[in-house]
Amino acid sequence: MIPCTSAIPSQDKVISIKNLKFTYEGGVRALLDICLDIKYGDYLAIVGGNGSGKTTLAKTLNGLLRPSSGAVFVKGRPTTERRVSELARVVGYAFQNPDHQLFCSSVEEEVRFGPSNLGYSEEDVRQKAEQAIVGMNLSHLRGKPPLSLRLGERRRVSMASVMAMDPEVLILDEPTTGLDAEEVSELMRRLRRLNEEGKTIILITHDMRLVAEHAKRVVVMAQGRIVLDSDPRGAFTDIEVLRRSSLEPPAVTLLSHRLSKFEIPQDIISPEELVLHLLRSEGESK
């Protein structure tokens, strides 16, 4: 086993994973020797095919799963030293299926559940819940029973209920499943704003377009290992690695690869970039 190396100075790391291995009770080896450091304020996307270990990795970050070997440090302390409820203050985790956490009779009550568990004062709970409700655009639904809402709305409630705990790191597991295009871009705008306010965002997803347009850093997983770790541009130019990990780069990147003979650069990751490039080369030819 090779010890993990890192270029990030230790005071900048919010999460540090050292030689993490995880094996499920039935013997499934889900994570094999993971090394990963995450900076404060990063916007990280974890991508990979089904069963590549994304969710398992995420669950080790807030202590829901304990390393079989190796260690996960959150703000410098190993997760094994702290209870999940303590870690929840630092690492918020919005589960893939919102229906796995909704149980209250009103949206407001639901959102307040997390912060009240953490022992905030009544005033703080009210304030944090209010912020999350407004932030997730749920003001008009605050009195409604969460389970009666549409899937997209339920997902927003579940995210608000995690954001209300005001964690420094926010893990979102497939947050866009079941949302329509409008809801997706709304959600991504909010996440970006949270990130600009200093929150560390960890996005688990299949949607490479979202990754290309929003993430600062991409970690590609396959069969329990990290196979690629770079900025989105670097990640998407390595089409072979992505294919092997059952992923496909965004359509616009594939298009620019196909158009390579027209001198389109290979590292285009957003439609805006392609348009910009085309306009520029048109200007040059005139």
């Binding site: 829901l64 929840a88 985790y93 299926n97 796995h100 559940f113 912060p115 568990n117």
Partner: peptide, 16 residues
């Protein structure tokens, strides 16, 4: 397994 996942989700919200 649903119950397990729900318990995890609530623990992640600080419930003990």
């Amino acid at each position: 397994s649903t119950i397990e996942s729900i318990t995890d989700a609530q623990r992640a919200r600080g419930m003990e």
